[in-house]
């Protein structure tokens, strides 16, 4: 019910690389899970409000008061490739932003 192509498409969206074997097992496992999940597809839930959250708070806001930021050394402490006070990454080959 979910085929190779879909698996590959979803993997691309999720920035995961799967080898051929993984694609096969993934297709099988996801299909099995979705088969179980699909039972809810048959429920008639017309007009039922979806619940995305159980807390019913509103307007929880923060005063516009600046706080002290991290010292750059700390901000960059875990960076895989710090350079010149910034985080270095391979250049995106596609669009310049």
């Amino acid at each position: 019910m979910i085929d190779r192509e879909q698996v590959l498409h979803v993997a691309r969206l999720a920035r995961l690389r799967l080898d051929d074997a993984e694609v096969e097992t993934m297709a099988g496992e996801l299909s099995g899970i979705l088969e179980h999940v699909d039972r809810i597809a048959d429920l008639d839930l017309e007009g039922v409000e979806p619940t995305s959250h159980v807390v019913h708070l509103e307007n929880v806001l923060r005063a516009d008061r600046p706080w002290t930021s991290l010292p750059p050394a700390v901000a960059l402490a875990s960076a895989p490739e710090p350079f010149d006070g910034a985080f270095r990454v391979p250049s995106p080959q596609a669009d310049a932003d």
Partner: peptide, 27 residues
């Protein structure tokens, strides 16, 4: 032109040294 960022308290800035206005949230 608020004083702090949208979702954290780091100062809104322009032209400052790179990564001098960051915190665990905006990183």
């Amino acid at each position: 032109s608020t004083r702090s960022k949208m979702f954290c308290g780091c100062e809104v800035s322009f032209g400052d040294e790179p990564n001098t206005h960051t915190c665990p949230i905006c990183l």
